[in-house]
Amino acid sequence: MEKTVNQKAWFLVLPVLLLVAFSAVIPLMTVVNYSVQDTFGNNQFFWAGLEWFEEMLASERMWDALGRQLLFSLIILAIEVPLGIFVALNMPKSGFWSSLCLVLMSLPLLIPWNVVGTIWQIFGRVDIGLLGYTLDALGINYNYTQDTLAAWITIVVMDVWHWTSLVALLAFAGLKSIPDAYYQAAKIDQASRWKVFRYIELPKMAGVLMIAVLLRFMDSFMIYTEPFVVTGGGPGNATTMLSIDLVKMALGQFDLGPAAAFSLMYFLVILLVSWVFYTVMTTLEKRET
């Protein structure tokens, strides 16, 4: 007979469900209600059906924001994951220096998002910022408030500065869990440094790296504060990510209906990606055991 799974333990999470109901489920239901209606304030709503969804699906503005968002997430993943692994591989494995590295690495993670934004906003300014002033003095034309490329480089570098340590710390934890015997065996076989990395370290880190990729993808896909503080979505719409656009639509223009439809689609994409990552992660784990 095949083994069945006992799911009764899930009843133990009922209290959490109650909390989540108030913090997420009820607001989400409200968003669904808003998405099929139109309002001019005063809590008066008019039925609009699926009009907003249709409008949003045909709106260039949303697709552009989605494109920028995906590009941003892909760029920072392509930089942060390899860089994080590289840093973790080169960190001292134990002793005082290891602890010092860990503390220093976790510092950027402790800084609130808007402070990170403010730091880089000032850092990059041509008149008073160290980075902007230096680049300007070297004759490099750098102005993140006017130049699209400069704005993108600034927010990408800012994100790399802020979050690479998370990937590095996770990768480091993965590396620490590899027993010495593996390295000894590799040494006996005279495996090259690359082969040790490819066949021992990388497979052993796969689990935590998946978590790192998931966390970084989700977080960057929902990024709001940092680009909002640094560029405000500009120049033009160049750094208007999905959430910045959403806030502009919902609070700036008070278009609650379209914004609700927009956020539901945004939510569905995030739900899909989280599910894919989660499934891949659990499947990998099962194959290992």
Binding site: Q7, K8, I26, M29, T30, V32, N33, Y34, V36, Q37, T39, N43, F45, W47
Partner: peptide, 28 residues
């Protein structure tokens, strides 16, 4: 009132809730 309920959305959520409850009962 603030949740701005409509019948279609209410039915939509009732269907989802019914599905979830049915599957919970089935699982037990």
């Amino acid at each position: 009132d603030w949740m701005a309920w409509t019948w279609p959305t209410a039915i939509f959520f009732m269907v989802i809730a019914t599905l979830l409850i049915t599957f919970t009962v089935l699982a037990i």
